[in-house]
Amino acid sequence: MRLFTRRTGLALALIAALGLAAFWLLSAPRPLTAADVPGHTPDLANGKILYHAGGCISCHQPSPELAGVENTVPAGGAPLHTPVGTLYPMNLTPDAATGIGQWTDLQFLNAVMRGISPEGENLIPALPYTSYAHMKPEDVLDIRAYLASLPPVTSPEQEADITALPLIRRGVGLWKWVGLDTTPWKPDPAQSESWNRGSYLVNGPGHCQECHTPRNVFMALDESRAFAGGPHPEGKGKVPSLRGLIERGRYTDAADLASALKDGEAMGYDGLASGGMGQVQRNISQLPESDIQAIADYIASLK
């Protein structure tokens, strides 16, 4: 008896075709729709706060080749090195041709909260849409309104330097089934208003868990070990645990932690400059004191 008959060949081809079809269907982006866009009057001041809480500028820095653009303007293009390759985060200024000036609100929400580009492609999750997915859409639209108020800068988009990028994007679509939790953030009525504000800022815009929570075998955040620290996403060194910071004597109390987030190593708080935290701290220092305290109240409560 021959093992490989025409029939088994056909069966194998069929299985392969079904597998491909399943991959294609399962890896397709699942976007928000027009019904998900809230009727909303943008609040620029709130947008500015959340823009800093989100640390947008840290990745969307202007390319060093852009002459005369302040490094506080999110014109994008500066290389972002990741283990999968080099990305060039895009221009967030309202430039019509190269920025997001022409984007609709729905396109912006889909990019930020679902990781889907206006062209319908899956975005590499270096953009922490996995955290932004928990945000209130109104807040995301406020960030958009703030960005729209910035001066437009011409900074053409540059394709990521990643091998087999289209296939990787499809792979990301598959990964989203386990890696993208779109549950909206919910307050804990047992906790204070400040704690809840902190919880929102940390878990939504602040996306602290993206580095401070270890990942499971599927590269999804392991919520059973939330904030327990993990390997550094750039591949070298570790990201410290945020659990028990007070109990372990890293900070005397939540007020001390707030002071650390506000001033960082400039006031002798060791460990707040290296590993990228310097940029995070600088962004946090732009927030109102009440928000910095809220973040500290929440982080200090992590056991």
Partner: peptide
């Protein structure tokens, strides 16, 4: 003092690694 604090911060941000 502020310049002293900033010099610690600035150097560590560029030249010191994340926790090993």
């Amino acid at each position: 003092f502020p310049d002293l604090g900033k010099s610690c911060q600035g150097c560590h941000e560029k030249f010191r690694q994340a926790d090993q």
